[in-house]
């Protein structure tokens, strides 16, 4: 399960989506999510799905990656589906023990599950097509105005970037720790959920200690390379809007306008 994390997994490709400014892509994801919440008729999800498929195609990211992001939240999706299915009032269509499944329940369950799934798929595309650094820079610029009210956005961007950098290292370390403890007889795979939780705790302590040691090393390395946490810093690739971004913004707002019009006019 730990090995399935897709956050911060950049898929290097030379595509028009990859070339977009990360701020544009952030806005795109936001608009896509808003659109998902505006939609009423479940059939519209099909259209939104086709849109995201087309974007994956445009970004030259293989469709296999589409499902990878969902792997981590598969339990959430199942829970959502089941609870919506049995807890929506309406015309009953089937009776299972004490649970009543209604027609409305089926529609609701499907649309809610699909909505969450599409949200994840959309957000995954953002992380596949922008490096963590671009994302951090994009967030820093997009929320830069908050620095004025003393929210340390720049520090946060550095923290986000380092967190991304250490995700694979800590995952690897967890695997080593799990192997080391399994070799001394700790059961991780075939045991009760309760036991699993307890065993996870025995991993957390060494993992935490090593993270502290790593951060102290990293702090020293950063300081040696001139990081002071204050003062102006520059960027190797400063974020800059290009013609592609303008086109993308126009398309995105047209799309949003279209969805809003649909919603207001209420035509299916």
């Amino acid at each position: 399960m730990i090995r399935d994390i897709t956050i911060g997994q950049y898929y290097a490709q030379d595509s028009s989506i990859h070339k977009l400014d990360s701020r544009t892509k952030l806005m795109g994801v936001l608009i896509y999510i808003v659109a998902l919440f505006l939609v009423k008729n479940p059939w519209w999800y099909l259209l939104l799905f086709v849109v995201i498929l087309a974007l994956y195609r445009l970004a030259k990211v293989p469709y296999g990656y589409l499902l990878r992001g969902l792997k981590g939240i598969v339990i959430l999706l199942i829970f959502t589906f089941v609870f919506r299915l049995i807890s929506t009032p309406g015309i009953p269509v089937a009776q299972l023990w004490i649970f009543t499944i209604t027609g409305e329940g089926i529609t609701k369950a499907i649309s809610l599950t699909v909505r969450i799934a599409l949200m994840i798929i959309g957000a995954s595309l953002l992380s596949y097509t922008s490096t963590p650094r671009e994302l951090a820079d994009g967030l820093e610029k997009a929320f830069g105005f908050l620095e004025k009210i003393h929210v340390p956005i720049h520090d946060m961007a550095v923290i986000v970037m380092i967190a991304f950098r250490f995700i694979p290292i800590l995952i690897e370390e967890t695997n080593v720790l799990m192997d080391a403890q399994a070799s001394r007889g700790v059961e991780f795979e075939k045991c009760s959920v309760w036991k699993k939780c307890r065993n996870i705790f025995s991993l957390l302590l060494p993992l935490f200690l090593s993270a502290v040691r790593r951060s102290s090393d990293l702090a020293m390395a950063m300081e040696a390379r001139g990081y002071s946490g204050e003062g102006e810093t520059s960027r190797m690739y400063p974020l800059r809007y290009h013609s592609g971004d303008r086109i993308a913004y126009v398309l995105m707002f047209l799309f949003l306008a279209g969805v809003i019009v649909m919603r207001v006019v209420n035509i299916y």
Partner: peptide, 28 residues
């Protein structure tokens, strides 16, 4: 330093190498 994993800041090779000059606020 000794441990290569604990001194690389960037998430890509060039990003990491750029860390020092960026801190000095040099032009891109």
């Amino acid at each position: 330093f000794q441990n290569p994993d604990n001194q690389i800041v960037g998430t890509s090779v060039e990003e990491d190498v750029a860390f020092g000059p960026e801190n000095k606020n040099l032009p891109s």
